[in-house]
Simulated scan of single mutants.
Amino acid sequence: MLFSSVFHSIYLIGFLNTWIFCLITTFVSWSYEQFGIQTGLIYGSYHYTKYLGIKVGDVPILIPIAWYMMIYPSYIISNLILVGRPIASNQRKILSLSLVGSLVMTAWDLVLDPYLSGPTVRAWVWHAGGIYFGIPLQNFFGWILTTFTIHMMYRVYESSIIMESKDRARKSYPLILPVLGYSAMCIVHLIPGEPKELRMIGPIIMGIPVILALRRFIRDS
């Protein structure tokens, strides 16, 4: 999924813009995660176990990588929902695009977090628990904040440059592959079947943005 996001991004927005997007995502996600673990102010009180391997500070190296893997499809989906094409370099819609992107990303975590923090995997542990499968609601507001920050920073940069691939991004159906990747990841997270309720929650919470994105893209194409 990471390679899919990176290669698709290079094809769509170019190597330099992909590199900048990756740097912004890595820096912001690691900083927020590290600060969140130390203080409990962003996502709630938690810590990572050894499951995800080597750490930088208190954050596994895989986490910033996973943030980019996940945030790129949310970038594409938010563009499709609001503009109808995979690229949406528009100064007037930066706030709305960033907000929609953060909600699309957080919908993913509603499916991802219960399994990875659950008793089978325990990639991270919530100290005080919470009402959503043992996860505090603060975590999801933290995801919205983190993703919104990343989207805003990149979109401000993006709005100041000319995207050479914008014109070709209107009717090329392979450019919506990240939407299918987002859908596939929903299925992958549901295969273990833990918790069972996610089999109902997942297709709805992640299916809505997929349907809206594909509907708008097909209509405008």
Rank of each mutant, 00 (worst) to 15 (best):
G134D: 11
F133V: 08
V125E: 13
D109V: 04
S89L: 03
R122I: 03
L116Y: 10
F133H: 15
S96C: 07
G84R: 02
P119S: 13
Q138Y: 08
G101F: 00
V83G: 02
L137T: 12
L103K: 05
F133W: 14
Y115K: 07
S89T: 08
W124P: 07
F133M: 06
S102I: 00
I131Q: 10
G130V: 05
F140D: 01
Q91D: 10
I87C: 00
R85A: 01
R92A: 13
G118E: 11
R122M: 13
G129H: 00
T120V: 15
L112D: 02
K93T: 07
S102F: 06
W126R: 08
N139W: 07
N90A: 09
I131R: 09
I131G: 02
S98M: 03
A107E: 00
V121F: 12
D109T: 03
P119K: 14
T106C: 12
V83A: 04
K93H: 09
T120A: 11
G130Q: 04
A107G: 15
H127S: 10
N90Q: 13
V111T: 14
G134P: 00
Y115V: 06
S102Y: 04
L80Q: 01
M105E: 11
L103E: 00
F133C: 02
G142N: 07
A128F: 13
S98V: 01
V100R: 01
W126N: 09
D109W: 06
A107R: 00
D113M: 10
S117M: 11
F140S: 02
P114I: 11
L137K: 05
S98C: 06
G84Q: 02
R85L: 03
G129L: 04
M105Y: 14
G134Y: 12
F140K: 00
L80W: 01
V111L: 15
Q91K: 15
G129F: 03
G84D: 07
V121H: 10
P114C: 10
L82W: 03
P136C: 05
G84A: 07
W108E: 00
